[in-house]
Nucleic acid binder design. Structure first.
Lengths: 344, 344
DNA sequence: GCTCGCGATGTGTACGTTCACATCCGCACG
DNA sequence: CGTGCGGATGTGAACGTACACATCGCGAGC
């Protein structure tokens, strides 16, 4: 009835309403309010309605900290990522965020600036200090596994894009397969001298793409040559191209990602070479821009968003004790555009 | 002395050590431990050392939830962002994350999938339920301000990239100035018929760039034409190009971002037009790839990372009650490459 | 030698919630 | 008509920490 009159005088500092304030307004005990909040059974609909009305009236919001304290559940998923500004990680993280929020979890993201072990470890340490309930790693560096062991991470975790290693904790695009598709495509076009510009050696996915490339080449009995170790950037592709094209002892290039492919095409243009007339190029990722490169890039599409969603499903499933969740690799897809052609 | 013998029997479920466990091991009171944790003065160095040793021994980590509960400070900054997978937001967020972590804050990020008012509001609502202490908005939609008002957001907030509006809460790259630089550059090259492909109308920065474009054109007494309203994507730039180039009643294009510029160049190529021979093009953002487009793109550089860092500085400053913080717009920079040339 | 003051440390309590358990009521069953 | 049972609701405690205040000891000043 009287919702204001008989309350104690307003304190100076306005305090956010708590569960007891709601209870008082609704004329029930705080426990009943708690029950409504956690929609537990055995509440009379009429009572629940009154509580909900009180909640609205007061603009009450449950205090997450108090809840976390008593349940000792932070409802937080930690994300350890390398450069979150890159297309792949950024896309995955966005999907992770949405899937997590859907499931009532929030994210704690941390960027590791370098691939130094100490950097990984301190990033991981930070996440542990946030009491994350699960961990998703998008920093596909080999040393992450070490760090996870060293810190005795006891929560469910999954690493993205880390082909082949430690499969029970991995979820990945089948990079080996993707690389084979790209390489096979070039071979089928008649190319026999194929160059690979790889990502940094300590990225597992770079390693996997290199393996796929080498295996496909081996299966076709073609000469393999040492891949160039790049850094994923367009600039690297460009300078590598300027260097490599001085010899021109190859007619096709498989680049570890679209950006390096772009840089390489830039170098071709500058050296007066036609793509795909003189050199065929394949990238990986299918970033949205690659369809508009000059020429539009043949590339291996990866579904980063799907990977992110599945990662969340996986760790939350494990958290709920569900077993036997699917770790099947996500299949990449070859997108043929105009940067590849039959060997002249 | 005895650090193990006289403790109560181990409970079944291993409980994380708390401040009292540390105190017991260190032989001090829990309050002393608390003091060491919050490095308050008046602790004997020797005591502090003993406490620290106990912390290490037990692998103790402060419980953030308990801390948040009692201090009623969440140490969280909310980030409301549009597509976090885009280069600009992603770069800013990365910088925000690092700056925030540096300052002992974590982030709660939420993506809004559409620019619908309800979507913005629910995103904001989510962040408020996280009890964020401050808010950084990277979703530069006009309606965000409405939502912030409607929800009576009482925390310090700052919107990024929202030129000109509500300046006390904005931090921005001077988009108007950037657009003017781009336009002026084209005018100085002799172009008089310049087309603008803008971002979506409800993005404040798109609006600002359009204003800058129109003003510069006005100052030069050149004919203005209705800008095309795009969606930031390369594909839009491409299709818009195919359409517009059927008439060819312009010799230069100012695109709202690099991706649309890329798409437009693609269309030029397909229509048999040379860039910059027939058409000059300027973009905005200077994403890392744009230096390797065909041709390398003249563009207006924005320092997204700097913006992110300053946003954190601003809201945390306000939180500490510091006044008179700099809201000076960040100056963009024209990067002249090869997509622009004197009018034929 | 006594007191004052201050540095160093300890004790009580509150934060807001959930869990375990207690209580109350009405209805079905014998 | 008494008993038991289960649905609906209430009470007490605990989670781990920081703040306010209390206490202790020791050296300076008279």
């Amino acid at each position: 009835m009287t919702t204001e009159a008989d309350r104690p005088p307003e304190p100076d500092r306005v305090r956010a309403p708590n569960i007891r304030d709601v209870a008082r307004v609704a004329g029930v005990s705080y426990q009943t309010v708690s029950r409504v909040l956690n929609d537990s059974p055995n509440i009379r609909p009429e009572t629940a309605e009154r509580v909900r009305a009180a909640i609205d009236e007061l603009g009450y919001r449950p205090n997450q900290a108090a809840r976390a304290l008593v349940t000792s559940r932070s409802r937080t998923i930690g994300v350890l990522s390398g450069q979150t500004s890159h297309y792949g990680p950024a896309t995955s993280i966005q999907a992770i965020e949405m899937a997590a929020r859907e499931a009532g979890y929030r994210l704690s993201i941390t960027n590791i600036s370098s691939s130094e072990y100490t950097s990984i470890k301190s990033g991981l340490d930070y996440l542990m200090s946030q009491a994350v309930e699960a961990l998703i790693v998008i920093a596909p560096q080999v040393r992450v596994f070490e760090a996870i062991n060293d810190l005795q991470v006891a929560v469910p975790f999954v690493t993205l894009e880390a082909t082949g290693l430690n499969t029970s904790h991995s979820l990945w695009v089948d990079q080996v397969q993707g690389a084979r598709m790209a390489t096979k495509h070039l071979i089928e076009l008649g190319h026999t001298e194929i160059m690979h510009i790889s990502g940094p050696q300590d990225w597992i996915e770079a390693e996997a793409r290199m393996q796929g490339f080498l295996r496909e080449l081996g299966d076709a009995d073609l000469r393999t040559r040492a891949p160039i170790l790049g850094d994923w950037t367009a600039s690297f592709g460009y300078y590598a191209g300027l260097e490599l094209l001085r010899y021109r002892d190859f007619t096709a290039v498989f680049a570890g990602n679209d950006q390096m492919a772009l840089g390489f095409m830039h170098a071709c243009r500058e050296m007066g070479l036609s793509v795909p007339g003189d050199i065929s190029i394949v990238g990986v990722d299918d970033i949205p821009e690659s369809a508009h490169y000059a020429p539009p890039l043949t590339t291996v599409r990866q579904d980063f968003a799907e990977i992110g969603r599945r990662a969340v499903g996986l760790v939350l499933g494990e958290l709920r004790g569900e077993a036997g969740l699917s770790h099947d690799p996500v299949q990449p897809q070859l997108i043929v555009r105009e940067s590849t052609a039959k060997r002249a």
